[in-house]
C-alpha cells in the first residue's frame, strides 16, 4: 500500500503505523525533483513481511527524524543526508554515513558525474555531416558539465 501524506504528518503517520503493527523499518530514501523540492519515502512492514506500507511526502530540504519511532531509521537518514543534503531535524548525529567524501551530494540532480565529464558522449556522432543541425547534447547533462 502507498500512503501519500503532507510533510507535517511525517512523524505522526509513522507513529500510527508502528502501533498498527508495522514494526519493521525497511528503508528510507529520497528523490531530488527540482532545485528545492524532494520526495522522501519510507517503507515499513509487518513482522511476518506479509504486508507493507510505503509512505511518501514532498519536502523542501528538511524533515523531522523518525529515530524516536523507528531506531533503525538512524543510518538511512544519515545516508539520505549525505546523498541528497536533506537535514533530519533532531537527529543526534546528522553527519555523513560513509567515510568517502563525494565532494557534494551525489544523488542530487545538480551533482556532476565525473565519468560523464571524462567520457565523450557517443551520441555526438552525426552520420550525415552535411545535414546542418544544431549539435545534439546529451540529455540530462547540464551544459556546464561537458568538457
Amino acid at each position: 500500500m502507498i500512503q501519500e501524506i503532507a510533510a507535517s504528518q511525517w512523524q505522526e503517520t509513522h507513529r500510527n503505523l508502528l502501533s498498527a503493527g508495522y514494526v519493521r523499518f525497511e528503508f528510507l530514501t529520497a528523490a531530488h525533483l527540482t532545485e528545492n523540492n524532494f520526495e522522501i519515502y519510507s517503507r515499513v512492514s509487518t513482522a511476518d513481511l506479509a504486508d507493507f506500507v510505503l509512505v511518501k511526502t514532498n519536502i523542501s530540504d528538511s524533515v523531522e527524524t523518525l529515530i524516536e519511532i523507528y531506531p533503525a531509521a538512524k543510518f538511512h537518514e544519515q545516508e539520505t543526508h549525505q546523498m541528497f543534503g536533506i537535514t533530519f531535524e533532531n537527529h543526534p548525529r546528522m553527519e555523513k554515513a560513509f567515510e568517502t567524501d563525494f565532494g557534494g551530494n551525489p544523488l542530487r540532480r545538480d551533482f556532476a558525474l565525473i565519468t560523464r565529464q571524462a567520457t565523450n558522449w557517443p551520441g555526438a556522432v552525426e552520420p550525415d555531416e552535411k545535414a546542418k543541425r544544431r549539435p545534439s547534447l546529451p540529455p540530462g547533462v547540464h551544459e556546464s558539465w561537458s568538457s
Binding site: T119, W121, P122, G123, V125, P127, D128, E129, K130, A131, S136, P138, P139, G140
Partner: peptide
C-alpha cells in the same frame, strides 16, 4: 538509441 541510452553504452560509426 545511442542518444537515449542512459548509460552511453551504444556507439555507432556510420557515413552517408
Amino acid at each position: 538509441c545511442v542518444r537515449e541510452c542512459p548509460d552511453w553504452c551504444i556507439s555507432i560509426e556510420a557515413h552517408s
